[in-house]
Design a protein around this nucleic acid. Structure first.
Length: 596
RNA sequence: GGUUCCGUAGCUCAGUUGGAUAGAGCAACAGCCUUCUAAGCUGUGGGUCGCGCGUUCGAAUCGCGCCGGAAUCACCA
């Protein structure tokens, strides 16, 4: 990239002009601010001590040196301590011509031997997916695409939390009050049917606790002694003991949950290469823990419970097996980490999990290392923030959640309504129209979520529908559709622009150059998103690109331009922009329509 | 209470490996469709970057202290 050449030459300039070696990293290069003439700006402040001249004089000397050694540099100017470089139109035209038809532009060919294992989604089978899970799924899917674009082989895995006390609660409620209901008999999606019983359990459990507290128990005692929770724990023990009846109800209800999840996943457009089930891995975790006791890394207390002592590592003691021998969340995660490592020998394992579990992952890494499994330190937790409602956090048990299926329905309806109001569905067949509404509705939802920095909490107000104007998915999709339409017209008009040679001496207008420069930035954007695990970086880039293109499109005629060379140039810029919009959106898991 | 994260325009968010006058969108107001898709474009108003001190030629960005919010510290997951 040209920045590297600028850096190297700047180092040479400092050495030859001022007699000092400076490392490449000492050269600060940034994009020139838009009010100022230039493409790149070098900060010369770090060199004034060496040059013992004013910032202006230092900048001027370096600028002169660069101009003598860099043919691509057409001019420079100095403002305060900022050396602004103007690259030649010839350079940008060459860049455009070389890359506008390169399908791999900005992407790296696979360049890493060992894969990255990326876990995301990881639902519990006791309740349907909600908006928080949507954020998780979108981040996971997008991150996989971003890592692939950066040359990684990615194995997407889902770890289904299909066992544990939570599913026992739904099972118990169903046994008591279910009357043999099924998804078929109720018309409810399987995961929603199960969620109904989870809520029912909680309602009755709360009532029991209330009664006990009135009898004088503390809240903690009541929470432990309420008959329903005691029964649920009994079911968990029976399940671990492979009690036939318990296991078959468990299979039945989990099956319903999976059918429901599959529908939601398909609609959301996410998928997995491998699905792990905790029921199949928790025993491995248990085994690892018991081995840890034998080797003396873990401790068994008098009541039989097993703990990891992490006080020397700056954390606390952590329970790994209960006194009754059943396993906890951490136990299973140890097992799945081991299994996943043995399955793929990845260079790293990434977990897309909410930031409420930051502590859990600190512990997980340290316990793995303590057990001699060094890859524990290659675990990255992509810790994302909560989705909050105006009234606070979503809680499944209290029914204050934005359901994933409902939300997607609503997005579809809003997309349909808006599209019809604008009269843009008139010429479409029914299936094409449906497809378009889904593309736009999901595009709006996905962009809304992914444009926010993953690590930050974000706000969603169900009363305000997600916008289709401004900094939104549909805005970007619309820009793409406009470009496609323009190109179709160009072809219809018989312009053979794709094979056209553009005169390298053609002068560029500011809007043309700005757009080309934004396209150039795609490369570093992809790289940065990969380094920071951040779809938001792609989102912000593609918005900026689309926004800029709309200005270009508004101000400059393309097909109505008189000079053939200019027509070809602008078509080439348009086509390249369309391709980069599509590639960026694909990295976000968002489709782009040919018309809208 | 300990630990971690967050606080930028009325609202939702960018910008944070220290760089020039802190940016978008929404909302409000004013313009632009006989011309390649107006889900668009242009303009106006809107800021003590939570507060204070410090480091620096230069701080929204780094350090310390406060204030406010969130998460977590379970024999829950």
């Amino acid at each position: 990239m040209i920045e590297t050449r600028i850096s190297e030459l700047t180092c040479r300039a400092v050495k030859e002009l001022f007699g000092h070696e400076v490392p490449l990293s000492a050269v600060g290069i940034e994009k020139t601010r838009k009010e100022i003439t230039g493409d790149f700006t070098i900060l010369v402040f770090p060199f004034v001590k060496i040059s013992r001249k004013s910032p202006e004089a230092t900048a001027a000397e370096i600028g002169t040196f660069l101009q003598q050694h860099m043919p691509e540099l057409s001019s420079f100017n100095v403002i305060k301590g900022f050396l602004n470089l103007v690259l030649s139109d010839r350079y940008w035209l060459k860049f455009l011509e070389k890359n506008s038809n390169n399908a791999d532009f900005g992407f790296h060919k696979q360049r890493h031997e060992r894969p990255v294992v990326l876990e995301y989604s990881s639902p519990n089978t006791n309740k349907p997916l909600h908006l928080g899970h949507i954020r998780n799924n979108l981040l996971g899917f997008s991150l996989a695409e971003i890592l692939k674009a950066n040359g990684h082989k990615v194995v997407k895995v889902n770890l289904v939390n299909d066992r544990g006390i939570h599913i026992c609660k739904s099972m118990l409620a169903y046994m008591k009050w279910g009357n043999g209901e099924t998804p078929a008999s109720t018309g409810l999606k399987g995961d929603h049917l199960i969620g109904k019983y989870y809520v029912l359990f909680d309602k009755n459990y709360k009532a029991e606790m209330h009664g006990l507290i009135e009898k004088g128990l503390t809240e903690e005692e009541a929470g432990r002694q309420a008959p329903l929770i005691v029964e649920a724990q009994e079911i968990l023990r029976k399940w671990e003991a492979k009690d036939h009846e318990t296991v078959s109800l468990w299979k039945l209800m989990n099956g319903w949950a999976y059918e429901g999840f599959d529908v939601t996943y398909r609609r959301l457009g996410v998928d997995f290469d491998h699905i792990y089930y905790e029921s199949e891995t928790y025993l491995l975790g248990k085994k690892l823990v018991l081995q840890g006791v034998d080797s003396g890394e873990l401790v068994r207390k008098e009541d039989g419970s097993i703990w990891a002592d992490l006080r020397e590592e700056g954390l606390d003691e952590k329970l790994l097996l209960r006194s009754d021998g059943t396993s906890v969340y951490m136990t299973q995660d140890l097992g799945t980490a081991r299994l996943r490592y043995d399955d793929y020998h990845p260079s790293s394992m990434i977990y897309v999990v909410g930031n409420e579990q930051n502590y859990h992952f600190d512990v997980l890494k340290k316990v793995l290392v303590k057990l001699g499994l060094e890859y524990g330190s290659d675990i990255h937790h992509l810790s994302y923030g909560m989705v909050e409602l105006p009234e606070g956090k979503m809680k499944s048990r209290e029914g204050t959640v934005v359901d994933a299926d409902d939300l997607m329905d609503e997005m579809f309806r809003t997309a349909e309504e808006t599209t019809r109001e604008l009269g843009k569905a008139n010429e479409l067949s029914a299936p094409d129209a449906e497809q378009l509404f889904s593309t736009i509705g999901l595009g709006a939802l996905k962009y809304f979520i992914l444009k926010v920095d993953p690590k930050k909490n974000m706000m969603f107000d169900p009363k305000e529908s997600i916008d289709f104007n401004g900094n939104t998915g549909p805005f970007i999709q619309y820009t793409y559709a406009r470009i496609r339409s323009l190109l179709a017209r160009a072809n219809a008009a018989g312009h053979f622009w794709e094979d056209a040679e553009i005169d390298r001496g053609l002068p560029l207008l500011p809007l043309e150059k700005e757009t080309i420069r934004r396209l150039y930035q795609f490369q570093e954007t992809v790289q940065q998103a990969g380094e920071e695990f951040s779809p938001a970086i792609i989102s912000n880039y593609v918005y900026d690109l689309a926004k800029g293109f709309n200005g270009f499109y508004q101000e400059l005629p393309v097909l109505k331009e008189e000079e053939k060379q200019k027509i070809y140039l602008r078509l080439m810029i348009s086509k390249f922009t369309g391709d980069i919009i599509a590639k960026s959106m694909a990295m976000l898991g968002i489709r782009v329509p040919e018309r809208m």
